[in-house]
Design a protein around this nucleic acid. Structure first.
Lengths: 230, 230
DNA sequence: CTTGTCTGTCACAGAACTGTTACGGGGGCG
DNA sequence: CGCCCCCGTAACAGTTCTGTGACAGACAAG
C-alpha cells in the first residue's frame, strides 16, 4: 500500500474519455492517479504500484473486470486495496457476483463524478479500520473487533484503545512487518505528527499485557525495520 | 519488458549472415526477434521495444558492444532486460570487463545455435521471478520480503538488516554476477561512500548464517568480478 | 474538585549492528 | 618458484537501535 500522503487511485477503463474524465477529477480532488486500459494492465499495475483504491470497469478487453478483480484480490498488494466495480449492469445478480469476487463496492452507470469521489473517500475511510466483522485469531490470541474484546487462551485481557488498534493491525496481517511509520498511519491515522518512538512504547505496553501470565511474546521485533506478529 | 506471450529477443551483430542465422533459429524456437546492426541502433531498439533478452556482439561499428551494454543497462528498459555478450575473445579479463558493465551472461565464439538458444532460455527463466512481490526462492532457501523472514530447509535464520537486503539482491536475480559497486548501490543505496571491501565482510557474515548447520555455500565468488547466487 | 486511566515524550542502559583494518591463505602469471 | 593481487575472516571501536521506567498532561467519571 502506498505510504505517501495522498492516496493512490488506480483507474481502469478501456474508454479513453472515461479515463480522462475520472483522472482529471480525482486529481482535482487531491488524489494521486494512475491508469490502466485493460484487465491485464490493471493486475500488473496493482502489483507494481500497490494503490489504495482500484476503480474497475466491468467490461474490459483481455481480462474481464470480474476476473481482474479476482486476481487483484488474490495478490498481496491487492488485498490491501479497496476495489470498486463500475458497471452499466444494475441487476442485483451482477452486484452480488461483483461483491462475491472480493470487490468492496459497486457503482452503477450512469454515475456522477461527485458520487465516484464520495465512494472513493468512503472506501478509503473504511479501509483503515479493521476489515470487518469476524474475529481475528492468531495462536491462542483472539481479537473481536465488534465486541472490542481480546482474549489469550480464554483469559480476558484489558487493552487501552491504542493498544487494541495496534494489536488489531498486527494480527490482521500475520507475518507482515510493519514499519513504525506504517503503524502510525494505520493505528494513529494519517497526517498525524507523532514521534515514531511512541510506537515502541506502545508495543512494550502491549507486550506486557499479552505476556502477563508468563506466556511467550507473540510480537517479533525486526531490527531496522519494525514489528510483526507470527 | 514485453508482457506478451512470446519473449522478444534483440539480436545485435554487424554481420548479416550471423544476424540471419540467429534470427531464423530463434524464431523457429518460438521467440519474437528484432535486430540491430550496430551499437547505436541497439541502444535505440532497447529503448523503443523493451526486449526481454539482448544478444550483443562484442565487436560493433559506431559503438562498441561494451559501451552499448553500459548504455543499455543505464536505461530503464535495459535494466529489465538480460544482456548476453557474444565475443570471439575468450580471455578472462574480457569476461570480467563484460560482466563489469552489467552483462548478465557471456557466450564465446564459436558457439552452436543450440547453445545460444539454451542460454537465452536460461536467462529468461532468471529474469521472470523479479516481477512478483512474492516469496523469493532459491534451492532450499526462501526469502519473504514482506515478513522480512529467511528460512533454509524450513529452519528459520536470523539476518541483520544489511545481510537481509544483500541476500534479497542476490536471490532476486539468480545467476547474475554483481560487482561490489553494484551491490553497494543496490544494498547500501546510491551516493554513498563506503569501501568496497565492506561488501566482502558482509558476504562473509551472510555466508556464516546461511551455512550455519554445515550446509553448502550458495554464494559463488567470481574472482575479479564479484558475487552471484545459483 | 478529585481520582484514576490513558497517552506522548524523554532519558538511559544494554544489545545489536556496522565499517574499517589487519593478517593469512591461495591462485594466477611471469 | 616467487611475486603480487584477490579474497576470507577475526577483531575492534564507534554508532545506531531498542526496551523500559519515569513523568506530566489530557481527559472522563464520580
Amino acid at each position: 500500500m502506498a505510504q505517501d500522503a495522498a492516496p493512490l487511485v488506480l483507474v481502469v477503463d478501456d474508454e479513453p474519455a472515461q479515463l480522462a474524465l475520472l483522472s482529471y477529477n480525482l486529481k482535482a480532488a487531491g488524489f494521486r492517479v494512475s491508469t490502466a486500459k485493460d484487465g491485464e494492465e490493471a493486475v500488473l499495475a496493482v502489483a507494481e504500484q500497490g494503490p489504495d483504491i482500484v476503480l474497475l470497469d466491468w467490461m474490459l478487453p483481455r481480462l474481464s473486470g470480474l476476473e481482474a478483480c479476482r486476481q487483484i484480490k488474490a495478490s498481496p498488494q491487492g488485498r490491501e486495496a479497496a476495489v470498486i466495480m463500475v458497471s452499466a449492469r444494475s441487476e442485483e445478480s451482477d452486484r452480488v457476483r461483483g461483491l462475491d469476487t472480493g470487490a468492496d463496492d459497486y457503482i452503477v452507470k450512469p454515475y456522477s463524478v461527485a458520487e465516484v469521489i464520495a465512494r472513493v473517500r468512503a472506501n478509503l475511510r473504511r479501509l483503515r479500520p479493521i476489515a470487518a466483522g469476524q474475529v481475528l485469531e492468531m495462536g491462542d490470541i483472539q481479537l473481536d473487533p465488534v465486541a472490542h474484546r481480546v482474549t489469550r487462551a480464554g483469559e480476558n485481557l484489558h487493552l487501552g484503545p491504542t493498544e487494541f488498534r495496534l494489536l488489531a493491525a498486527l494480527i490482521e496481517r500475520p507475518g507482515k512487518v510493519w514499519t513504525r511509520e506504517a503503524l502510525l498511519d494505520r493505528v494513529w491515522g494519517r497526517d498525524i505528527y507523532i514521534d515514531t518512538r511512541t510506537v515502541d512504547v506502545h508495543v512494550g505496553r502491549l507486550r506486557k499485557v499479552l505476556c502477563a501470565s508468563g506466556r511467550e511474546d507473540p510480537i517479533r521485533t525486526v531490527r531496522g525495520a519494525g514489528y510483526a506478529m507470527g
